[in-house]
Write a protein that binds this DNA or RNA. Structure first.
Lengths: 247, 247
DNA sequence: ACAAAAGTGTTTTTAATACACCCATGA
DNA sequence: TCATGGGTGTATTAAAAACACTTTTGT
């Protein structure tokens, strides 16, 4: 988080849980933070990307701005998923120190709106650059985080899992062209389960929103797989107005 | 909303979309508001129950407090579902006037966290009293609302429909003891669809969390129905860790 | 020729849907 | 005895799950 010149609203912030998928791992984008610990010694830890909102800024805009300032990306899948407003969510001395150092004012209570974002960080498609000491970290290897950011991250992960079960959002984490196996791996990793590849294939192809491309994998030491892409128009068109209930 | 003596945080509020079910209608609890309209003339409309939060109050607490002050009820199903933070969400003159009149200060921007609540208002179980000009209004007959409360209400309704499909929350709207037909009607009304009664019965009884009581309806001019109750323990116990996906 | 992942079909089981009549009660 | 909503069973269709081998490529 950089020092801001425009006037900020010190009561309200946004935090982004930004997910990416690469090398068969689900990753989250974290920012390294330098702070002064309880003993007055400089230390480092991680935090979620986030920022205060400016005085007349929409929350969604603040989240998109945060993401854009960090990655340079625009038009990213971004969705509000929760608010964190416990009065003592900022109470550790290290956190209070850090806020004072970065904002220049004493800040005690901040209500933050959490967003989750999905980014395609595939090898082939790295048309963005990270700034601000940001790095992708495997969700299973997230270190201790600042504030209540662990809680926020975990709630975001839950949200991702839930959405993945009910909406076609997995594609947001993949490049334009992907193999069905990659999609399956993505489901397996995020939902933390094993899926039968024949049944998976059958299921996703029965719906009509995956279109097979002429292109195949190249240079792989096995039978090359076809690439597919997601056809959102077809999806929106045959979206079932599911009336059933499953509780 | 009453004038508060304790110190409030004028940037943050909670609003509650409180649902109830009676006489086969889904209802929402609204508060009549007296305000001065654009022409300076006293007028009335409706708003959602809500309040500013106090300076060191948790958001969830503020929502529970709002609900309690209004109905006297405690331990009600209450869940945060969205934040509304557009900088111009309070912009109509009538709304600004009203805020000034009720709080005594000029307030322009308020970010509100919306909660939805489920209350059992069944005929038989009316162990609470409404205060503050509150009344139950059929969701299909909601008049114009203050601020962006219509948007909030509609998003809350969506949320209810979604939750109803995926979690056993319908019971929160019914008395302890209910007939299966009442439950079916509730689903039909909220999801706005028709369900086959044989299939409905089969489905809800296959799961094991409905327990038939010895008691039957009395004084009805037709074959009396058995009462059932929801067994949350059984539900939690066999909750399926659903791995499937349905998008 | 071997390793590695891609791709394919059938059977079984389970869940969803469609559909029509008799039952118990109060008026 | 009539009107009202309660309660039941079966057959059909669709979806999910289980399961093992052949194909194509690079090395």
């Amino acid at each position: 988080m950089e020092k801001v010149v425009r006037s900020i609203n010190p009561h309200l912030s946004v935090d982004c849980v930004i997910f990416g998928f690469s090398t068969s791992q689900l990753k989250v984008l974290l920012i390294q933070r330098d702070y002064i610990n309880e003993e007055g010694i400089p230390a480092q830890d991680y935090k979620l990307p986030g920022d205060f909102i400016t005085t007349r800024e929409d929350l969604d805009h603040a989240a998109a701005r945060t993401l854009n300032e960090l990655t340079g990306l625009q038009n990213i899948f971004l969705k509000q998923f929760a608010v964190f407003g416990k009065p003592d969510r900022i109470s550790r001395k290290a956190d209070l120190n850090w806020l004072k150092a970065t904002t220049g004012t004493d800040i005690h209570r901040v209500v933050t709106t959490a967003y989750f974002a999905l980014i395609n960080i595939s090898e082939s498609d790295r048309n963005y650059a990270l700034k601000n000491k940001a790095s992708w970290i495997d969700v299973n290897r997230v270190p201790e985080l600042a504030f209540d950011h662990r809680e926020i991250m975990e709630k975001g992960l839950h949200h991702l899992q839930n959405s993945l079960r009910n909406e076609p959002i997995g594609f947001e984490l993949l490049p334009e062209k992907f193999t069905i196996r990659k999609l399956q791996t993505l489901y397996q990793v995020i939902l933390n389960c094993k899926l039968d590849n024949r049944n998976f294939r059958k299921k996703v192809l029965k719906a009509k929103y995956l279109v097979q491309l002429d292109e195949k994998q190249e240079g792989v030491a096995h039978k090359p797989a076809y690439f597919y892409s997601f056809d959102k128009i077809t999806y929106d068109h045959n979206k079932k107005n599911s009336l059933g209930f499953n509780f």
